[in-house]
Write a protein that binds this DNA or RNA. Sequence first.
DNA 1: GACCGGAATGTTTACGTAAACATCGGCCGA
DNA 2: TCGGCCGATGTTTACGTAAACATTCCGGTC
Lengths: 338, 338
Amino acid sequence: MGRPKARVSMADVARLAGVSSQTVSRVSTGHPSVVGSTRQQVLAAMKELGYRPNSAARALKSGQFRTIGVILFTFSSTGNSRTLEAIATHAAQEGYAITLIPVAVPTQDSVVGAFTRLGELAVDGVIVIMEVHLLDSATVTLPPHVQVVVVDSDAGDRYTVVDTDQADGARQAVTHLLDLGHCTVWHVAGPEESFAAERRAQAWRDTLTAAGREVPAPLRGDWSAESGYQAGLVLADRPDCTAVFAANDQMALGVLRALHERGRSVPGEVSVVGFDDIADATSFIPPLTTVHQDFAEVGRRCVQGILHQIDSGEAAPGTTLVPTRLVVRASTAPPPRP
Amino acid sequence: MGRPKARVSMADVARLAGVSSQTVSRVSTGHPSVVGSTRQQVLAAMKELGYRPNSAARALKSGQFRTIGVILFTFSSTGNSRTLEAIATHAAQEGYAITLIPVAVPTQDSVVGAFTRLGELAVDGVIVIMEVHLLDSATVTLPPHVQVVVVDSDAGDRYTVVDTDQADGARQAVTHLLDLGHCTVWHVAGPEESFAAERRAQAWRDTLTAAGREVPAPLRGDWSAESGYQAGLVLADRPDCTAVFAANDQMALGVLRALHERGRSVPGEVSVVGFDDIADATSFIPPLTTVHQDFAEVGRRCVQGILHQIDSGEAAPGTTLVPTRLVVRASTAPPPRP
DNA sequence: GACCGGAATGTTTACGTAAACATCGGCCGA
DNA sequence: TCGGCCGATGTTTACGTAAACATTCCGGTC
């Protein structure tokens, strides 16, 4: 409001440089047909006045914002915030900015609200990081001119979906434990609403079944270490439990603590595998064997996907899976000899 | 490009509703002097055409973007991403969007680059989450019309700074250990470039000195659990070390692992205190006594501060400290009887 | 019954940029 | 030598919105 001077515009620069504002525009956008001497003159004037292009005017004119919206529920999940980081980094490399749209409470109302606001938002495309269950239940149609990429979903028939290969990761984890000689593997699953949790649980079940092993009833957590601890207390009391696959590293941490408190040694008596490969996993007691997720790659492919859609102007339904890799550390070993 | 139809504008709505576009504008902005029946007509037309205000045009006209830029180096620090989450949430409540500007490599060049891009960005204000050392060394002046709030800095004389009360948190941690009867407290510090680390180390030193205790040489980590583990290995070999204050929870985790591996029981032989109170700290072995930081409050005050500056049009230098609180769990106890 | 005031609505204009079109001047080939 | 062509630059215009100003119409007042 009370700023000393209005913002410098192209007209101001043009006046000082003694050219037309269109020439300033050409210099600003790097158009080739401006001769060197003129360009220098304009650049000098820009510098002297401290000219900055007005992105609102530019967006208005061009119809492009060079901005990607990212909708997400929570940062607290390791995956979300690491994916967001990768998205932001890659978008920046492509000259795109990121606009964050947090949806604090994942109720249908707030999702609708977020998408409504989205329609007014200055974005060329949107990346949605959330369980698509909510996307479905929300009776919202995305504004037709906005392209969408979804993470963590199975809606590959309708949207472009990028996700970690959850199933293969879980399979690797279970196979690793079976190969070590365990009769079967117990599972601490994530919350029901989560697709990732569902996938991991399903692959765990399938792998056991395919190997002809008994499938114990899964325990259910909510991704938190505390919920893993509760599950771990239950498992610690079962002498027949020698191998546990937790659906994420945090819950594995809780399982480790429960086993430790109940005096069951890891990996001597019980083996534990996690999922995510968070940085801290190397410093758990003992260092955790876990499934590594390449969040950076997920983010990269999200940006790539959305930019492709923005350029081509049309959606490209389909699912891209980013491979996972088992990282073996010290929390797994053959089962104890009876 | 090849979209079936151009975007719906106010003129289209006006045509359908049989009013002028200015009336549509008035309805859109909630201007009072539109009679009920007209308003209904316009709203119906908006709905039928799927009208969405064009924020670029709106920003161009009003000179405001209703957007806050957030510059940050890394999400991997717990504090950064939790603060970001709180900022995003509160900004959304105020009807502001968040634009993320990641600076992957904290070199001077990339900082300059980020701030240059910033000048062109459609933001009304900026929140900087980073060590201000780099802000200083970067020979950048922020565009004069952009307001700034800084987190984690001591530049309160030049900028509005919001930070956790690092010093008091560290004091509480050290005092707690001394009160338990420990002769002195060892410190695993964060990296030198970090103001937060510097503050915590200084307060640790001051508190020991004020109590007339010996001040051991601090060990230095880089916030990671692995670096805490390395420091822990050193401390585990010193029989005179009975109490450790780690500058964050991750490093505390590493210390716990090192002590465990070397057979020194926690808290029986050695007490450990962390800083941050991350969610997982309750499931460390043993559950970690740590200093709780209220990131949500930090985020809230950042948004509040920047909005105030945007409204008033002038900077408001000064520092706001958010209190911390010691959370006592199971990793601290009186020292062993010799 | 003419006039005044104010509420409801319409018209004009400007925000800063960049595409489209217009102009100018010099160089090349016939 | 001259027409034409192309590269460099200028002029016009439109993007969608909302402030400022203009107009219309109504009820109420003297």
